[in-house]
């Protein structure tokens, strides 16, 4: 009897889908989040304050959206390394649209929406290319998305000649820096996506199919599931989420650069996926969101501590790399302990 890759480790939660919010991993992450908040709260002055809340919630959306996309790919035994470059390319197409149509540094609402639409379209196309390569041409996901990543970054560099596109009209900042009832807009978008993803994964046929494809694509195929299309759709959704992240980044920084977040954001996305315990056919969206918040609190906390040092961001990178390795090892040990249970 051949063992299916990965299927041994997946924990199936169909039977208590309604209680997925109270899943073990989520509780663990919630505890971790509270502990980290407490730790920074007691050691860093004014950490538990509204301005800090705004910083954290407005920044977590970008990494969270990419992380949710990565998690979706991970759930079907794939990986999407192109999330960050898809985001940057999408933001770039939006920025170029805005530049083209803006007059005296200002744009009409219609143009703004058009640019967002173009950004989403870009994300859709990027995801579709990944999906075709992986789903229809059977290219291994690491390789396919590495190729996609090279291509998307290549397009960004070629189009901008490697320079950042700045001086975007102030309206873009609504999405990046605006607030509604005191809550930053990016966070509202993120929560909206969270709800949508939760619904899609747990209450639609697509979500069900995707999980079944993740567990055993061959058996899904023989049950009449068009697994190639499911794989492609998963990468398309990931691409769309990334382009949304790109729109938010563009709004927050009011500029677009091909190298924004390069590598660091992929590490974040992988961290979210691993912290949330995503495995073949198993994806706790709530856990992924909590993992995002945990990471963002850590990131903001580190930032406020180490920014005073010269070269602080570099030290941050060093720490994130170390953290990824530590989380991978820790998650693996946790899995082994659970298997023994």
């Amino acid at each position: 009897m051949k063992r299916q890759p990965k299927s041994g480790e997946s924990r199936f939660t169909f039977s208590h889908v309604g209680l997925a919010i109270l899943e073990r991993r989520s509780i663990l992450l919630l505890g971790l989040l509270v502990a980290i908040l407490f730790a920074f709260g007691t050691t860093t002055p004014r950490f538990l304050s509204y301005p800090m809340f705004r910083v954290i919630t407005s920044q977590c959306a970008e990494i969270g959206l990419m992380g949710l996309g990565m998690g979706l790919a991970w759930m079907i035994n794939g990986v999407d390394l192109s999330v960050n470059d898809t985001a940057n390319l999408s933001a770039l197409t939006a920025a170029l649209t805005l530049k083209h149509f803006s007059s005296r540094g200002s744009v009409a609402l219609g143009v703004l929406l058009l640019s967002y639409l173009i950004a989403l379209l870009t994300g859709l196309l990027c995801g579709m290319l990944n999906g075709i390569l992986i789903g229809y041409l059977d290219v291994p996901p690491i390789l396919a998305t590495l190729g996609g990543m090279t291509l998307y970054r290549g397009i960004s560099i070629a189009v901008t000649s490697g320079r950042a596109v700045a001086g975007l009209p102030p309206q873009v900042a609504i999405v990046g820096r605006g607030t509604m009832f005191g809550v930053p807009v990016p966070f509202i978008i993120f929560l909206g996506i969270y709800a949508a993803m939760y619904l899609i994964l747990n209450h639609t046929t697509f979500g069900f199919k995707a999980r079944m494809v993740g567990i055993n694509a061959r058996a899904a195929y023989f049950s009449g599931i068009n697994y190639r299309r499911v794989i492609m759709l998963v990468y398309v959704v990931s691409g769309l989420l990334s382009s949304l992240a790109g729109i938010i980044i563009m709004g927050r920084t009011r500029s677009v650069a091909y190298e924004y977040g390069t590598q660091v954001y992929i590490v974040f996305a992988l961290l979210i996926t691993n912290l949330a315990g995503v495995s073949a056919g198993h994806y706790g969206i709530t856990a992924a969101v909590l993992a995002t918040l945990t990471l963002q609190v850590l990131s903001t906390g580190f930032y406020s501590r180490f920014m005073t040092l010269p070269g602080g961001p570099f030290f941050n990178n060093f720490l994130w790399g170390l953290f990824l390795v530590a989380v991978l090892v820790f998650a693996q040990l946790l899995k082994r302990a659970r298997a023994k249970e």
């Binding site: 590598q263 590490v267 060093f318």
Partner: peptide, 28 residues
């Protein structure tokens, strides 16, 4: 060693090291 002993994909571990090593260079 880390990927072998803990049975992790080398790719994920090496991504961590990638970031760590450049961070190390620039900071330390």
């Amino acid at each position: 060693l880390i990927s072998g002993v803990f049975r992790l994909p080398v790719f994920a571990v090496s991504l961590g090291f990638w970031l760590m090593l450049y961070g190390f260079n620039l900071f330390f």
